[in-house]
Design a protein around this nucleic acid. Structure first.
Length: 246
DNA sequence: AACCGTTCCAACCGCAAACGG
DNA sequence: CCCGTTTGCGGTTGGAACGGT
């Protein structure tokens, strides 16, 4: 039985594999290692190539669009990672599976309160901070709000009379402030305030319950948060606003 | 600085499907 | 169809990196 190396690949091994496949293409994974001068199993070579060395891999953090695709497909297909990967060019099944387990599972596995996905922990601190904003003790920067209404008229959020908030803070996550009466009255929350990089308020807005308006609000909102480098930041918001999308 | 718990992901394993003689 | 070999898939894990004390 020949010695078969395991563990992390060295740059020299990577180069041997790349050089061999470039020259002779992939013809038989189990036979190829000995011709390529590698003390590896064919299985290990295949995995290294498919998940890491292939030239068409994208790398880097997942975009919001990619994440949306993964969530949507996971909800319809379940853990069929290779099928999901086929819909996302440049991403491997292994990468998507890891991304799901490290970023998505905790959000998808959360509880729903008033039909809003929330994190179960640190609620008291989140509520306290949200109330401080609501009571004017912490003043958000309303003038920098980047979101416009669907009719292209600037919205004057300073005159808002709503007291029902969902807040998000990078330290504390999401808390929801929706009253149950909102749900009973079929009032849908929409995103209409982005105060600064750290805090976002989703405000209950009875005037914006038509689906087209909500879609536009959420679309604009997603544009804003997708530029954040903190994946968990926009991902948690995305999950929390799940009920706002059709 | 040292320690410890957590996060993340590359790479592993076992099993199933596909292939081909 | 059978059976050995190869390929592909999904669950799991080892250990590096990171963050907090």
């Amino acid at each position: 039985m020949d010695y078969v190396k395991k563990g992390a690949w060295s740059p020299e091994e990577d180069k041997k594999l790349i050089d061999y496949i470039t020259k002779y293409r992939i013809w038989n994974w189990s036979q190829m290692p000995k011709f390529a001068g590698l003390s590896r199993s064919g299985k290990s070579c295949r995995l290294r190539w498919v998940n890491y060395l292939r030239p068409d891999l994208k790398r880097g953090p997942f975009s919001l669009e990619e994440t949306q695709t993964i969530i949507r497909m996971y909800q319809s297909l379940g853990n069929r990672w290779s099928a999901i990967a086929k819909e996302i060019p440049g991403r491997t099944d292994n990468e998507i599976k890891n991304f799901y387990h490290t970023h998505l599972k905790k959000h998808l596995g959360g509880t729903k309160v008033n039909n809003v996905q929330v994190k179960p922990k640190s609620r008291s601190k989140k509520v306290e901070k949200a109330k401080q904003i609501e009571m004017g003790q912490k003043k958000p920067l309303l003038t920098t709000c980047p979101i416009k209404d669907p009719n292209d008229q600037s919205l004057d959020f300073t005159k808002s009379s709503s007291s029902n908030y969902i807040t998000f803070d990078e330290n504390y996550g999401i808390s929801d402030f929706l009253e149950t009466s909102d749900q009973e009255n079929n009032v849908t929350s929409v995103v209409n305030q982005v105060h600064d990089e750290n805090i976002v308020i989703l405000e209950s807005n009875p005037d914006s319950t038509s689906p087209s308006n909500i879609d536009l609000y959420v679309k604009d909102f997603m544009n804003v948060i997708s530029h954040s480098s903190n994946v968990d930041f926009w991902l948690e918001l995305y999950m929390a606003t799940d009920n706002l999308r059709g």
